[in-house]
Design a protein around this nucleic acid. Sequence first.
DNA 1: GTCTATACGCAGATAGAC
DNA 2: GTCTATCTGCGTATAGAC
Lengths: 217, 217
Amino acid sequence: MSQSTGGTRERIQAVALELFTEQGYEKTSLREIAERLNVTKAALYYHFKSKDEIVSSFVEDRLRRMDELIEWARSQPATLATRRILISRYADAMFATQQPSVMRFFEQNQTALKSLSAGLQMRDRMMSLANELCRGDESPAAQLRAALTLFAVHSSWFAVRAPDITDDERRRIALEVADELLAKIASEPTVDHPARGPLTRTGEQPGADGQPRSDAA
Amino acid sequence: MSQSTGGTRERIQAVALELFTEQGYEKTSLREIAERLNVTKAALYYHFKSKDEIVSSFVEDRLRRMDELIEWARSQPATLATRRILISRYADAMFATQQPSVMRFFEQNQTALKSLSAGLQMRDRMMSLANELCRGDESPAAQLRAALTLFAVHSSWFAVRAPDITDDERRRIALEVADELLAKIASEPTVDHPARGPLTRTGEQPGADGQPRSDAA
DNA sequence: GTCTATACGCAGATAGAC
DNA sequence: GTCTATCTGCGTATAGAC
């Protein structure tokens, strides 16, 4: 919040993010980060209390965005239109500024993030987002489609191997595939076109969300 | 191959696989594995030359299966039918025996596997498999769909949260979603139904496979 | 086949000078 | 705000006894 230094804190974040993503959080030592910046390990400890606080520092921003998104989705009806806007906004957030780097960091460090509080929080948000994407259709297939929708946005960054493709094209293709998946999720709890069938409705649990959210949106 | 010991080698593999998956490869120490088995670290080194050789030992089997699968796919025409059988056989392999554990290990240790030879080999095979799933349709959207098809099989294990679902149901749902994705991939290089449009064909690279494979299939 | 003992290095983290 | 110096502990791996 209050950095009066010449951006050293930001430089540490940038280098750490890069190394954590390339070789993994566990495998990257503070010594390595310090060497890249031509400073000592002790200098790092002036800016951050610990190694995992470096992670938290660049995750905060993303957490905030996701919270806003989830809150918005909960205030909307569970229709295809809502879901399309939801995934579209999610893609916007992921493709904006330097978020792609943070996105890749998360993909590449899923396991390490299990022991980091920032990681657990992000996991929680991703689950909520997936839940919102299939709210109203509790079938297993819908859950899978919802998850794949998020994967579509994420993997558009590495799964598409084209030499001169722009970020905008990646985004558009991701949303094209995502929309197809979303279209197969039932829009209303009472389905009126039994062509797809309800599959195995194992048992409705009413409030799988977690918090009851009593505060205003 | 030739274990005359009372299965100690297998017990090490099992415990290592479990811990590597739960807490990550880097974070799991040989001391921890040894303690779980009530042996010493030195005992581990009798059975395996190094830590990463433990990984290789339980990856070998999976590599062989995937090689067979890829080889088969290459000998077949690039049609929807081929792709459906391919993903179905892949699912069979993934759901068979204790392969789900190995599958989860890979998902959870993507980054660590970049510095392990076994990991690099698996990455290579996954890429080849994805390539086969969209051979004949080099559009970015097809590449994304092919990758998501594989994700569908993988994520059916954790994305579907249902209390009493069987492995067979998971497999069926994964293939249901996978088939939808595959249906949108063009079956022939010369598309004759322009309803979907050619998207942004950025530039055809004839042999994006890597090896020219001159040997017989 | 498994043990004890140990080598050697690097990890994260702190104290206190400048 | 950055440094030098240092602490403490654990990491992988090896030697050699039983």
